[in-house]
């Protein structure tokens, strides 16, 4: 059974249909990349999966449970975390407060402290800056905070939306290394990226999205060799 299964999903903004009946699956332990140009519908898909948007038709199942109609705030506690596009850290809250909000649905204080230690170990810079307002962090640090915050919920699957957007090349590599680490520690990853090359280099499988349709899917290493992918997304 797939961990996350999306069936015939359709999403509209008013009269405009953004997602036109797509199907995809994420197996436990996989790193899945969703690639496509700006406006292809990548963010819309993630927002619909985590309940920020309502779909017009279709079904979203997580670990066999139908979550299509579930409100966003009830999805986190099932084990699904979402690192939104543009990071969206709470700028006026401290780094520590941001992280603690990531664990909002968890109740065991000791377990939360333990997770916090793990996250500080993975992102030492967050510990150094824990009492600083999140808005004062650099873009790359904010991305780390957004990831750390999502990991605070101790998710089974983490959805990441354009984690490399607007970051310097050094940070981009660092962020992708971290995604590999997150995957290695047992968390399933679904990553949406415009940086197709980087995304395909860390993913197991990938889906290519064009104007609301999945036009191509397969093993990431095959897609890296695919001529139309090369032409459209890898700039070769």
């Amino acid at each position: 059974m797939a961990m996350l299964k999306i069936t015939d999903l359709e999403v509209s903004y008013g009269m405009i249909q953004a997602i036109r009946g797509i199907n995809f699956e994420v197996e436990q332990g996989e790193v899945i990349a969703l690639i496509g140009a700006n406006g292809a519908g990548k963010t819309t898909i993630l927002h619909t999966v985590t309940g920020l948007l309502k779909c017009k038709a279709g079904k979203i199942e997580f670990e066999g449970k139908d979550i299509t109609k579930l409100p966003g705030h009830k999805i986190v506690s099932l084990g699904m975390a979402h690192v939104p596009e543009g990071r969206r850290v709470f700028a006026d809250l401290s780094v520590l407060e941001n992280l603690k909000l990531g664990a909002y649905t968890r109740t065991d204080k000791q377990e939360i402290e333990d997770t916090l230690k793990v996250i500080y170990k993975r992102f030492p810079r967050l510990e150094e800056r824990k009492s600083q307002m999140a808005g004062t962090l650099s873009g790359g640090e904010q991305q780390m905070l957004a990831m750390g915050r999502a990991l605070m919920s101790h998710p089974k699957i983490i959805l990441m939306d354009e984690p490399s957007m607007g970051l310097s090349p050094i940070f981009v590599s660092e962020i992708f290394d971290i995604i590999k680490e997150i995957s290695a520690s047992g968390t399933t990853v679904l990553v949406v990226e415009q940086n197709a090359k980087k995304a395909l280099s860390i993913a197991d499988r990938a889906y290519v999205l064009e104007t609301g349709n999945i036009v191509l899917e397969g093993a990431a290493k095959d897609l890296l060799e695919n001529d139309s992918v090369k032409k459209a997304y890898l700039g070769e």
Binding site: T50, G51, L52, P71, G72, H73, K74, I75, V76, S77, A81, H82, P84, R88, V89, F90, A91, D92, L93, E97, K100, L101, G102, Y104, T105, R149, A150, S153
Partner: peptide, 20 residues
């Protein structure tokens, strides 16, 4: 802190599991 989070960004707060 949930209130401050909702004041700042309702969508992101929802993603934390906060009932907006």
């Amino acid at each position: 802190s949930a209130m401050r989070a909702v004041a700042e960004d309702k969508g992101a707060a929802e993603l934390m599991g906060i009932d907006v």
